[in-house]
Amino acid sequence: MEKLVQKKKPGGLFDTLKTVFWAIVIALLVRTFAYEPFNIPSGSMIPTLLVGDYLFVSKYSYGYSKHSLPFSLPLIPGRILSSEPKRGDVIVFKLPADPSQDYIKRVIGLPGDTVQVKQGRLYINNEMVQRERIEDYILTDGTGQAIAVPQYLETLPGGKVHRILEIFGDQGPADNTDPFTVPEGHYFMMGDNRDNSADSRAFPARFRFVPFENLVGRAEFLFYSKDSSQPIYDLGSIRFDRLFKGVN
């Protein structure tokens, strides 16, 4: 006689909960040890990063500290499996003054460097950093008006080339600073939108330099970008030309 094959009954609620549990565990592991998503809420890194960009940050680039863990759980002493950042890397870090806040800036000064801005020009170890004027960047202000902003290609020691903006030319509020010497185990950060960035030039003196332990990871690539001033259902405001673009 032909046997009847009995259909396996669905596992029901228990199997569903088990699947959800393992999905959460895997997501947490990926977020902790591989890649974590972040979005850009301010214009301090224009033109490299725009408000409304969403990007992945590699958590393994510089090793792991307590700030690699959810809620900065103090389970990792110092930093393990560490690798030093390179000058010019774009990095997410915990604000020294308030570790609950994530900031994203570019590494300008390495441990032992002296960094200064004089008349709008960046100096590292008393050498003026090379920059080249290129086409103006068209920036939309708070009223929706388009304005042309001076844009430069800046070449950091070591050869990293990236774009910066100087909204006020070389007469911005942070275009003349004291010389800052970066302590060991710390980094000096600046935004690419030089006249519109709260960074190591503006932080209070005791929080000016970012400790190695506070680095969360290196910005790698965008996975989504949308003009955040437009309604969420407005598909025309998605910046398709920025999708899956690497962060320079």
Results as ranks from 00 to 15, higher is better:
17 L>N: 10
56 F>C: 00
179 P>K: 04
213 E>G: 07
162 H>M: 03
143 T>S: 14
119 Q>F: 12
133 R>I: 12
121 R>Q: 13
233 Y>G: 12
124 I>Y: 06
151 Q>G: 08
87 R>G: 01
104 I>Q: 02
45 M>Y: 00
142 G>K: 13
59 K>S: 09
52 G>A: 02
7 K>W: 07
138 I>V: 15
102 D>K: 07
109 G>A: 11
188 F>V: 05
77 P>R: 14
119 Q>W: 12
24 I>P: 05
88 G>A: 00
136 D>R: 09
223 F>H: 05
29 L>D: 10
243 L>H: 05
83 S>N: 14
35 Y>Q: 08
179 P>Y: 04
61 S>G: 01
74 P>Q: 09
29 L>E: 10
33 F>G: 09
177 T>N: 07
64 Y>V: 05
169 G>C: 10
86 K>A: 05
144 G>T: 05
44 S>Q: 03
136 D>L: 13
175 D>K: 08
129 V>D: 08
163 R>Q: 14
194 R>P: 03
235 L>P: 07
216 V>H: 10
226 K>L: 05
5 V>A: 12
224 Y>C: 01
150 P>A: 10
126 N>Q: 10
181 T>H: 07
81 L>C: 14
72 S>D: 15
65 S>I: 00
247 V>C: 03
138 I>M: 09
123 Y>S: 12
34 A>L: 15
211 P>W: 08
69 L>F: 00
101 Q>R: 11
153 L>C: 04
121 R>A: 13
82 S>M: 06
241 D>T: 14
89 D>A: 00
144 G>C: 04
5 V>C: 08
129 V>S: 06
59 K>R: 15
17 L>M: 09
89 D>S: 04
63 G>Q: 02
163 R>S: 13
161 V>S: 09
31 R>D: 00
145 Q>D: 14
146 A>N: 15
32 T>D: 05
67 H>Y: 13
65 S>T: 06
61 S>C: 07
57 V>W: 04
99 P>D: 11
227 D>G: 04
201 R>F: 06
233 Y>A: 12
77 P>H: 15
242 R>E: 02
33 F>Q: 14
184 E>D: 13
73 L>D: 11
124 I>P: 03
95 L>G: 01
70 P>L: 08
89 D>E: 03
239 R>D: 06
38 F>S: 05
36 E>D: 06
223 F>E: 03
127 E>D: 09
26 I>C: 06
128 M>K: 14
136 D>K: 14
89 D>W: 01
4 L>K: 13
41 P>Q: 01
132 E>D: 11
204 P>T: 11
89 D>T: 00
78 G>P: 10
208 R>K: 15
210 V>T: 01
176 N>Y: 13
25 V>M: 13
174 A>K: 13
116 Q>R: 05
11 G>V: 11
160 K>V: 14
6 Q>L: 12
211 P>Q: 09
42 S>G: 01
63 G>P: 00
164 I>Q: 03
184 E>N: 08
187 Y>N: 03
4 L>F: 09
69 L>M: 01
237 S>C: 02
163 R>E: 14
110 L>M: 11
139 L>R: 14
105 K>N: 03
4 L>C: 10
130 Q>L: 12
177 T>F: 10
228 S>L: 04
160 K>N: 13
2 E>I: 12
107 V>L: 03
102 D>P: 02
90 V>P: 00
35 Y>W: 14
118 K>E: 13
160 K>D: 11
94 K>R: 11
211 P>A: 05
91 I>Y: 06
163 R>T: 15
